[in-house]
Design a protein around this nucleic acid. Structure first.
Length: 883
RNA sequence: GGGCGGAUAGCUCAGUUGGGAGAGCACCGGCCUUACAAGCCGGGGGUCACAGGUUCAAGCCCUGUUCCGCCUACCA
C-alpha cells in the first residue's frame, strides 16, 4: 500500500475521500457489543433531519471525533452513536413549504398522506447532514444510525409516555400556554424566543358600573381587553380603600365585570389597577382561578378574533389592536399612549409573535423528576464542564415548571392516548386498544396531538442503544462517557436527558457534560443568514481541507470562550498541515525501513532530546484532552511538530542523514526518526485524521490503519532531563550566533568562525561534544572551544549561560553596529535588574517570601549582574577599538 | 429584575497551588541554505479596562466603576 510522496504540497481532496471510504469499508468505526475492553461512549447530539452542516455542528462533532479517535488509540472500545432528529415543527414547515410550491397544502392532503410525504422527503433529503458529517471525518458507528421516529425509538417513546402517565407524572389540563398562530401549535416555554421591541403602553379608562367615576388600566395588548373578566387592585391599596363600586363597565363590550382584590397587583405600578384577561395572560389566569372568574377567549388559534370579540369578530389580532385603539379614542376612553419597549415572545421556528392562549394540553410534572437530576450533579456523579455552567443548570432545575409536551402538528410521535366515544374513558397504552376496558365499546379515537420533539430526544442516550430491551450494547456502553454540546440546548435537551435517564435507567446518562461555546464570525457576531456573515464549513473544507479546518476549530476552542472563525485562520493551519506533509516527504526520503527498537548506544544529543520531548508532549496532550482542553492539546502538538521536530531536530540530523558512508550513527538516527515521526503522526491523528492516515501508509513498517495504532505511552528511551538541558545550552549558543548574524546583517551564505570560552565544565563538555551540531545549525566554518585562548579582537561577543561566544568578524565587523547591539543588550539587562534590585532591597520580601523563591531571585540577580559587567567590559573594548 | 462571561501586543486570543508577560497572524530586516517561499533566520512592539484593597509580591484573590456580549424572567 506504500506510495511515494512526491507532491510538494498536500492536496486534501482525493486523500480525504479515499481514506474515509477505507475506514468505513474496514469497519474501523464499529463498536463491539461484547467487548471486554474498557469502554468509551458518546451519543451524538442528533442533528435535525432538515439540517445542513453549520459551524456549530462542525465544532461539536470535531470535538467528539477528537475524543473518540483519541480513546481508540488509547485502546478503549469506543461507541460513537449517530443519528438524526425528526424535528417536528421544523420538518413539518419544510415539507409544507414544498407542498405550497406544488400548489397544495397538508389539509388538502390529509394527515395520513401528509405524513407519507414527510417520510418521502426524509428518504430523499434526510441524509444530507450525515454525508456532511462524514466529510468532517466523523468516525461514528454508522451502521447503528438511529432516527427519533424509527420503530424502536417510537416504541421507547410510547413506553415512557405510558409509564409516566401511570405514575401520575403526565397529565392533561386547561392552562395558558404559548401558542404559535402560524404553526398552529402549542410551544413549551423554552421554544419561545424573547426579543425587546418598541411597542406602546395604552392607558384605558374603565367607568365604574355605579357611575361613581372610573379607573385607568394599562396594557401593551389592548385587543385582549375584549376578553377581560375583571379589574384587580391590591387589597391594601389605600387609593381604592374607600371604593364603593364593585364592578366596572368593560368599554366597547358594555359588559359588567367585577373589581377583585388580589395581592399579585403591584402597588407601585401605574394606577395600581390591573385588567384581568384569564384566557390570554398567565398571571391573569392565576388571578382568575383564585377569584373564580370566567375565561373569555377572544383570540382564536389562527390569530383571528373569536365570536366573543363582539363587533371585532374575524379581524386579525393585530388589525384588531388598531381598531380597538381607534374605537376607544372615539369614545374618549383612551387616556394616553406611551411608547414602551418590552420583550415580546416569538416562535423559535417561524418567528411569529407568540400568543399566550388558554388551551387543553398535555404536561409532564417536572419537579419530581428534577430532584434526582439536581442531586446527580451535586454529588458529582455527572460533572458539567466548564463548571460555571452548573450554576445555570441548578438555576433552571430549581425553578423548573411543568413541561407542555403536546403539539398540534402532524409530524411526530402521536400521543398514545385514546378516548372511548361512548363512556369518555381515557385509555393510555403502548399499543392501540381494540375495545374500551370499561364499557367494551370499539369506538375509540386516538389523541390527534403529537409529542414535543424534545420528548423523544430526552430518551436518546438509552433509546438508541435498544431500550426498552436490555441489550448487550446498553450493558457495555451506558452510561455514556461524555455528552458534548452547546449551551443553547442545555435546558432543551441535557436537563431533560438527565431527568429521563435517571428515571428510566436508574442511572445517569453521562459521566461528563462538556459544554462548548458558539462559533461566531471574525468580528465575534453570531452567524446568521440575515446578517450574511455565515461561513459554510463545507466551503472551508473544499478550500483548505478537513484537517486544517479541524485543527483550527480545536486550536481556538478554549473553554468558555466563543470561537471566532475566519478563513484567514484556517489558512494558517493549512500551512501547518502542509509543513507536516513536507516533513514527511523529507523523512521518507531517508527512512528505508522500520525499526523495532532504538539503538541507544549510538544516539546523539538531538536524538535523546527529541525522544524526551516526544514523551513529554504525549503526556501533555493526554492531560489536555482528558480535561477537554482542546486548544492546549492542539497547541502542544503543533508546537512540538513545527518548532521542535521540524525546526530543530530535522535540521540537526541532516548532516547525519546525508552522510553517504552511513555507519552506526546514521542507523541509530534513522531509528529515532522513524519512531518519533510515527508517534508524532499518532499524536496528530485525532486532530488531523486524513493527512496522518495518508502519511502512515507511506511509512515503512506500518500495518493497516493509523486508527489501529497505539497511543505513545512512555517510549524508551524517554524522559531525559539532562539531554533537554544540554540541548537547551546548544540552542542558546546557536541562537546567540544567529542573532549576531541577523543584527549585523551578515548573509547566511557567509560562513562564520567562532571561539567559545566555556566557564564551567558542563558547558565545556556540551559545546565540545556537539561541535558539529553547532557548526551546522549556526552555519559556521570553524569553532574553537578553549577557555585559555586569547580573546579575539575583531569579534562580536555573545554571552550565554556558562560560556562566552566570540563571533570572529575580521574585516566584516562594523564597530558602530556592534556598539549599538551591545548597548541594546545592556539596556535590556538593566531593566530586568532594576526590578530585581527593588525586590532584594525589600526587607519584608527577604523575611516573608519562601526561601526557595528568595534564593531563586538571588541567583538570577547574580547571573544578570555578571552578564551586565561582562557586556559593559566588552562595550568598553569596542569603544577603544573605534578610537 | 436576576445571573454568567469578557476587557492582556496593531488584530485574534492563551495564561490556577499569586513570584519569568506569552502564542498565532500582521509588521520590519536578511535569505530561493539540496522537505517545505504555504518556507527559513533574526527583530521591534504591552500602565494586563479604570479606581481602591489584601499580600513581602497581583494579569491572577477581594470590593467598586465603566464598556461589550450572552442567558434568563409573568411586571400589567
Amino acid at each position: 500500500m506504500s506510495r511515494d510522496l512526491l507532491d510538494k504540497s498536500y492536496s486534501p481532496k482525493a486523500v480525504e475521500k479515499r481514506w474515509y471510504a477505507y475506514w468505513e469499508q474496514e469497519k474501523l468505526f464499529a463498536a463491539d457489543d461484547n467487548t471486554t475492553k474498557k469502554t468509551y461512549s458518546i451519543v451524538i447530539p442528533p442533528p435535525n433531519v432538515t439540517g445542513v452542516l453549520h459551524m456549530g455542528h462542525a465544532l461539536n462533532n470535531t470535538m467528539q471525533d477528537i475524543m473518540c479517535r483519541y480513546r481508540r488509540l488509547k485502546g478503549d472500545s469506543v461507541l460513537w452513536m449517530p443519528g438524526t432528529d425528526h424535528a417536528g415543527i421544523a420538518t413539518q414547515n419544510v415539507v409544507e413549504k414544498k407542498l405550497a410550491a406544488e400548489g397544495t397544502d397538508r389539509h388538502q392532503l390529509g394527515r395520513e398522506k401528509f405524513i407519507e410525504a414527510v417520510w418521502e422527503w426524509r428518504k430523499e433529503y434526510g441524509n444530507a447532514i450525515i454525508n456532511q458529517l462524514k466529510r468532517l471525518g466523523a468516525s461514528c458507528d454508522w451502521e447503528r444510525e438511529r432516527f427519533t421516529m424509527d420503530e424502536g425509538l417510537s416504541r421507547a417513546v410510547r413506553k415512557v409516555f405510558v409509564q409516566l402517565y401511570d405514575e401520575g407524572l403526565i397529565y392533561q389540563g386547561n392552562y395558558i400556554i404559548n401558542w404559535c398562530c402560524r404553526c398552529h401549535t402549542a410551544l413549551s416555554d423554552l421554544e419561545v424566543e424573547h426579543e425587546d421591541l418598541d411597542g406602546h403602553f395604552y392607558h384605558i379608562r374603565y367607568p365604574y358600573a355605579d357611575g361613581s367615576g372610573s379607573v385607568v388600566v394599562a396594557t401593551t395588548r389592548p385587543e385582549t381587553m375584549l376578553g377581560d373578566t375583571a379589574v384587580a387592585v391590591h387589597p391594601e391599596d389605600e387609593r381604592y380603600a374607600d371604593l364603593t363600586a364593585e364592578a366596572v363597565i368593560l368599554p366597547l363590550m358594555n359588559r359588567e365585570i367585577p373589581i377583585v382584590r388580589d395581592a399579585y397587583v403591584d402597588l407601585s405600578t401605574g394606577t395600581g389597577a390591573l385588567k384581568v384577561t384569564p384566557a390570554h395572560d398567565p398571571n391573569d389566569f392565576d388571578i382568575g382561578a383564585r377569584h373564580d372568574l370566567p375565561s373569555v377567549k377572544v383570540i382564536a388559534d389562527d390569530g383571528s378574533m373569536t365570536d366573543a370579540a363582539g363587533r371585532f369578530k374575524g379581524m386579525d389580532r393585530f388589525a384588531c389592536r388598531k381598531a380597538v385603539v381607534e374605537a376607544l379614542e372615539a369614545e374618549g376612553l383612551l387616556e394616553r399612549v406611551e411608547p414602551h419597549r418590552h420583550s415580546v415572545g416569538h416562535c423559535y421556528r417561524c418567528k411569529t409573535v407568540v400568543e399566550p392562549n388558554l388551551s387543553r394540553q398535555w404536561f409532564v410534572k417536572a419537579k419530581p423528576l428534577a430532584g434526582k437530576a439536581i442531586e446527580a450533579v451535586e454529588t458529582g456523579k455527572t460533572r458539567i464542564i466548564p463548571e460555571s455552567w452548573t450554576k445555570t443548570y441548578y438555576e433552571w432545575m430549581f425553578n423548573i415548571r411543568d413541561w407542555c409536551i403536546s403539539r398540534q402538528i402532524w409530524w411526530g410521535h402521536q400521543i398514545p392516548a385514546w378516548t372511548c366515544q361512548s363512556c369518555r374513558k381515557m385509555i393510555v397504552a403502548m399499543d392501540a386498544p381494540d375495545v374500551c376496558p370499561d364499557c367494551g365499546s370499539t369506538d375509540l379515537i386516538q389523541e390527534t396531538d403529537v409529542l414535543d420533539t424534545w420528548f423523544s430526544s430526552a430518551l436518546w442516550p438509552f433509546s438508541t442503544m435498544g431500550w426498552p430491551e436490555q441489550t448487550q450494547l446498553l450493558k457495555a456502553y451506558y452510561p455514556t462517557s461524555v455528552l458534548v454540546t452547546g449551551f443553547d440546548i442545555l435546558f432543551f435537551w441535557v436537563a431533560r436527558m438527565m431527568m429521563m435517564g435517571i428515571h428510566f435507567m436508574k442511572e445517569i446518562p453521562f459521566h461528563d457534560v462538556y459544554v462548548h461555546a458558539l462559533v461566531r464570525d471574525e468580528e465575534g457576531k453570531k452567524m446568521s443568514k440575515s446578517k450574511g456573515n455565515v461561513i459554510d464549513p463545507l466551503n472551508v473544507i473544499d478550500q483548505y481541507g478537513t484537517d486544517a479546518f479541524r485543527f483550527t476549530l480545536a486550536a481556538f476552542a478554549a473553554q468558555g470562550r466563543d470561537v471566532k472563525m475566519s478563513e484567514k485562520r484556517v489558512e494558517g493551519y493549512r500551512h501547518f498541515i502542509n509543513k507536516l506533509w513536507n516533513a514527511a516527504r523529507f523523512s521518507l526520503m531517508h527512512i528505508d525501513k522500520s525499526y523495532d527498537s532504538i539503538d541507544e548506544k549510538n544516539i546523539s544529543l538531538q536524538d535523546r532530546w527529541i525522544l524526551s520531548r516526544l514523551n513529554r508532549v504525549a503526556r501533555q496532550t493526554e492531560e489536555a484532552l482528558d480535561a477537554y482542553k482542546f486548544n492546549e492539546a492542539a497547541g502542544a502538538v503543533y508546537q512540538f511538530v513545527w518548532h521542535e521536530l521540524c525546526d530543530w531536530y530535522l535540521e540537526a540530523i541532516k548532516p547525519t542523514l546525508y552522510d553517504k558512508a552511513g555507519g552506526e550513527e546514521k542507523a541509530a538516527t534513522l531509528s529515532v526518526l522513524w519512531h518519533v515521526f510515527k508517534e508524532a503522526l499518532i499524536l496528530l491523528h485525532p486532530f488531523a485524521p486524513f493527512v496522518t492516515e495518508e502519511i502512515w501508509h507511506s511509512l515503512p513498517g506500518t500495518d493497516g490503519s493509523i486508527m489501529q495504532a497505539v497511543w505513545p505511552d512512555h517510549i524508551q528511551p524517554g524522559n531525559d532531563p539532562a539531554a533537554e538541558a544540554q540541548m537547551e545550552t546548544a540552542i542558546t549558543v546557536i541562537t546567540g550566533i544567529r542573532n549576531v548574524r541577523g543584527e549585523m546583517s551578515i548573509s547566511p551564505s557567509t560562513a562564520l568562525s567562532v571561539v567559545v570560552h566555556p566557564e564551567d565544565s558542563e558547558t565545556d563538555a556540551v559545546v565540545e561534544s556537539n561541535r558539529d551540531l553547532i557548526v551546522n545549525l549556526a552555519r559556521l566554518s570553524a569553532i574553537t572551544v578553549d577557555a585559555a585562548m586569547e580573546r579575539p579582537k575583531a569579534a562580536a561577543t555573545v554571552l550565554v549561560n556558562g560560556a562566552t561566544v566570540y563571533v570572529l568578524l575580521e574585516g566584516i565587523i562594523d564597530f558602530t553596529q556592534e556598539q549599538a547591539r551591545l548597548e541594546k543588550e545592556i539596556g535590556k539587562l538593566s531593566k530586568e535588574l532594576s526590578g530585581i534590585n527593588k525586590k532584594l532591597g525589600n526587607e519584608d520580601f527577604l523575611k516573608k517570601a519562601p526561601p526557595d523563591v528568595v534564593d531563586g531571585v538571588r541567583e538570577k540577580h547574580a547571573a544578570l549582574l555578571e552578564k551586565q559587567h561582562a557586556l559593559a567590559a566588552t562595550l568598553e573594548r569596542v569603544k577603544d577599538m573605534m578610537d
